[in-house]
């Protein structure tokens, strides 16, 4: 987390140079807020896919991400970060959107695994979404199938850096401003009911 922990590559530097203007325009309070939110990240406990198997090692003694200020928390209302760990099936996507909308701002999303980026191994599956960023705002992608715990930690560190330096436009701002775009995508895929419907009446589903 300290300087030198992550070696910036040239790409990252050029990205920062582009957003130099944003960085300098923030007020003192904004700076302080960003510093605080980068130092305390509460991750909502929702293992959406198979990437969830690498979360216990990350949160326990071997990799111990708590040293970076990242802690698990049970409810979305107290959480800052959601890790979408791998493929999202259509049924899960409804819950993910609901969880995401319940989280209070500032909130960030880390998408874990190749399948959130472009379908990955399940690119021809009828039940998994291919691009997560079409449906909710995503801040950080960690590629791999499955990504190692070190990769996940690096994703966290990069996210913290960018929050602290205010170098990226957070996904939740995009989600709020372009809500119509996201909603159109959600409705195109999931129909009008983008939130889960729990109903007892399953009549009419019987094909025989």
């Amino acid at each position: 987390m300290q300087k030198g922990f992550v070696a910036y590559n040239n790409e990252q530097k050029s990205l920062e140079a582009e957003t130099e203007g944003i960085k300098n325009s923030q007020t003192l309070i904004q700076k302080a807020m960003n510093w605080f939110s980068a130092r305390s990240m509460f991750v909502v406990a929702y293992g959406t896919g198979c990437g969830a198997i690498e979360m216990p090692p990350v949160f326990t003694s071997r990799y111990d991400i708590e040293r970076l200020g990242v802690v698990g928390v049970a409810t979305p209302r107290q959480a800052d970060i959601m890790i979408v760990s791998g493929y999202c099936s259509l049924k899960t996507l409804r819950r993910v959107i609901r969880t995401y909308e319940q989280m209070s701002e500032p909130k960030y999303v880390i998408a874990l695994g190749s399948c959130t980026i472009n379908g990955g191994m399940y690119w021809d599956s009828y039940n998994t979404i291919k691009k997560l960023e079409e449906y909710i705002g995503v801040d950080m992608y960690v590629a791999g199938c499955m990504p190692r715990p070190e990769a996940l930690i690096e994703g966290f560190v990069k996210l913290q850096e960018s929050i602290r330096n205010n170098t990226i436009q957070p996904g939740y701002v995009k989600y709020r401003e372009d809500y119509a775009y996201y909603q159109a995508n959600q409705e195109k895929l999931l129909g009008k009911e983008t939130q889960p419907v729990y109903e007892e009446d399953y009549a009419g589903m019987n094909l025989s």
Partner: peptide, 25 residues
Amino acid sequence: EQWHDLPPLRREFDTLAFVHEHFAF
């Protein structure tokens, strides 16, 4: 959940066509 297409494991259900219809890469 709320599936209105053919039952997916029948051979005539084409998963690739379904993917191209509903998802963008």
